[in-house]
């Protein structure tokens, strides 16, 4: 039963990946203009005749469309994203250089938003309908409406420029020669503001999920039983309520990973942070189409992975979901 469901789910994700790849294949060929230029990402005039012949040959522009499609599919699935004719380097290399930075931001932000969202959510639910709860709830709804890139700009203006607490851009101090701990501190100082901004993007959702989940646990029979047994409030909160209320939060967190990954596009742009999101922005402004496409596929893969993680995690955490 569950295996059939998992199979179906996997099939669905495979379909999404296929659609993303197909979009990548179709867009440059559907647009008006020379497909060669759209595939290469530079004006045809800027390419040497050898390069032109090489692209034509590799992509198979003189072959029938279905043949081209299969070639493209094969390349992508074997991890060959092609060559950036603008940057003069293989795209896979460019991506590998950027990926760690984006992972650093995304994972740290996820940890921060989990911690803050869960704690505040639990407090709000525990004291629900109090003034504190109302302030938190409304604050989160307002926070959810603010553009994240704008918050990033404000943080730079206040914490980096006015107060000078953090550097305003980049991932490391260029040519600093830092080693060991000094280097780690430098990386952390650079990541602080982007991580804060990215966390604020996810905290409201985690908070609202946790608060709702806690509220439904509050009315549960086993809590009343625990109370009747005379267990202290604190122990009920920590041992009985939070573990039970955490279940939906874990799913939300796994899904937020994919979302935060996409959110890095604007945030890395604001902080000039050398990650994948910034790469997509640079590729878009430089019309470097192959790089843009490769980054897009990576983002798709990240979202799918986080969905898979959520599917895999849930039945392991909740025995009821396994029985169903």
């Amino acid at each position: 039963m569950t295996n059939a469901r998992h199979g179906k789910q996997l099939l669905q994700y495979g379909l999404v990946l296929l659609i993303a790849i197909t979009l990548n294949f179709a867009l440059p060929r559907l647009m008006p203009g020379n497909p060669l230029a759209l595939i290469a990402g530079v004006d045809v005039g800027l390419l040497t005749p050898e390069e032109r012949a090489e692209i034509r040959d590799r992509v198979g522009l003189d072959q029938p469309l279905h043949q081209q499609y299969l070639t493209y599919l094969g390349d992508v699935l074997t991890g060959d994203f092609g060559y950036s004719y603008r940057q003069k380097q293989p795209i896979t290399e460019m991506i590998m250089a950027r990926l760690p930075w984006t992972l650093l931001l995304t994972l740290s932000a996820l940890a921060v938003s989990a911690l803050v969202g869960i704690i505040l959510g639990a407090i709000a639910a525990w004291r629900r309908a109090s003034r504190l709860d109302m302030v938190l709830l409304n604050g989160m709804i307002v926070l959810d409406s603010l553009p994240s890139f704008w918050l990033g700009m404000l943080f730079i203006a206040i914490f980096a420029v006015q107060l000078g607490w953090f550097p305003s851009q980049g991932a490391v101090t260029p040519a600093s020669g830092y080693q060991g701990i000094a280097y780690a501190v430098d990386v952390m100082r650079h990541a602080a503001l982007p991580v804060l901004t990215l966390s604020l993007l996810s905290i409201p959702r985690v908070f609202l999920t946790m608060r709702y989940s806690m509220c439904s646990v509050l009315g549960a029979e086993f809590i009343r039983t625990a109370r009747a047994k005379g267990i202290s409030d604190w122990r009920i909160l920590v041992r009985h309520m939070i573990p039970n209320a955490m279940l939906p939060v874990v799913t939300v967190l796994a899904l937020r990973f994919g979302f935060a990954f996409g959110g890095t596009v604007v945030i890395e742009t604001v902080f000039s942070y050398p990650g994948l999101g910034r790469l997509i922005f640079e590729a878009v402004s430089g019309r470097d189409y192959p790089v843009m496409q490769a980054a897009f596929l990576l983002f798709t893969a990240a979202v799918l992975l986080s969905n898979l993680l959520a599917d895999w995690l849930y039945p392991r955490l909740d025995p009821r979901a396994r029985a169903a």
Binding site: A20, L27, L38, G262, V265, V284, M292, T300, V303, N307
Partner: peptide, 16 residues
């Protein structure tokens, strides 16, 4: 629903 939203938006805007 599953397609990564902002990156897809950007790709489409860049091409169109």
């Amino acid at each position: 629903l599953v397609l990564p939203f902002l990156p897809l938006l950007i790709i489409l805007a860049a091409y169109l």
